[in-house]
């Protein structure tokens, strides 16, 4: 059972020691990763995905339950402790959705019936339906993203979940985050979205490739997050209307702004 993941600090882009020297993330916690573009957010979660041992740009070291993971732990997907939704928006593999999911289920030792479940779940997150016979490479950015989310949630089901910019493809981000984070997992969410950032327990602030500080979400921020969610719901609602060719005549801002 994985109870804890530890990040031991390394160096930033300028070769300086990063200010945060140690981060412990426990089972059941959700951590955000925030910072300007290019500040090293994706690199940080890539270090965790690979269970880096001072062998990447950053020279960070990752411990699981206070121990160094073995070669087997780091490489065998059947034992794999980490599920990652990367920032990539498209698939490059030249095969159909069905073939791809069947192969992936085999790699992860998951049951064949997962294939149907993944497609069904993906279709709740995106607009135009994805079919088993579609070629992976013709899927749109949003469809690919929805399929990646569903694949990570069902086939790669792992105790550590890493999510890179779920908001970037116009899919339903709250549902997607819920589907991915499950219960009793260790979750890290890279995001530029303030609402998602305030939904986490703590957030790591990145700058120049280094971990700058850790901010704990305050109770006040949690309240604000709920307010912000209302604005977000309104925007999502409007987005759907615009997407379906409706004319927007009125919006209810009452109670949203104070």
């Amino acid at each position: 059972m994985i109870k804890k993941v530890t990040i031991l600090g390394g160096y930033d882009k300028f070769g300086e020691k990063e200010p945060v020297r140690r981060v412990d993330i426990k089972r059941g916690e959700i951590f955000g990763v925030v910072g300007p573009t290019g500040s090293g957010k994706s690199s940080l979660i890539a270090d965790i995905e690979q269970l880096a041992q001072r062998d990447t740009f950053s020279k960070r070291k990752i411990l699981v339950n206070d121990k160094e993971p073995t070669y087997e732990d780091r490489t065998n997907p059947r034992k794999k402790m980490v599920a990652q939704l990367s920032q990539n928006m498209n698939f490059l593999a030249d095969m159909t959705v069905g073939e791809f999911l069947t192969l992936h289920a085999k790699c992860r030792g998951a049951h064949k019936s997962c294939v149907e479940k993944v497609i069904k779940l993906a279709n709740t997150l995106t607009g135009e339906p994805i079919k088993e016979g579609h070629d992976l490479t013709i899927l749109s950015g949003g469809q690919s993203r929805a399929l990646m989310v569903a694949d990570v949630a069902i086939i790669s089901d792992s105790p550590i979940v890493l999510i890179d910019e779920i908001e970037n493809a116009g899919i339903r981000k709250h549902e997607a985050l819920e589907v991915l984070s499950g219960h009793g997992k260790i979750v890290m969410v890279v995001t530029h979205d303030p609402i998602l950032a305030l939904m986490t327990d703590k957030r790591i602030v990145m700058k120049n490739g280094g971990m700058q500080k850790i901010v704990t979400t305050t109770p006040h921020e949690k309240e604000l997050s709920e307010e912000l969610s209302k604005i977000d719901d309104l925007l999502l609602n409007l987005r759907d209307k615009v997407r379906h060719g409706e004319i927007i005549e009125d919006i209810q801002l009452k109670g949203l702004t104070s």
Binding site: E49, Q50, T56, T75, N88, F91, A93
Partner: peptide, 30 residues
């Protein structure tokens, strides 16, 4: 590429060479 595609790639290598030791490496970061 996505994590899923990496895992499938790895499985395909084992189909051709079951005894290989596979090392996932990055030529940029080392």
């Amino acid at each position: 590429i996505s994590q899923a595609e990496r895992e499938i790639f790895r499985e395909r290598i084992f189909e051709v060479n079951p005894n290989a030791k596979i090392i996932e490496a990055n030529g940029l970061s080392g």
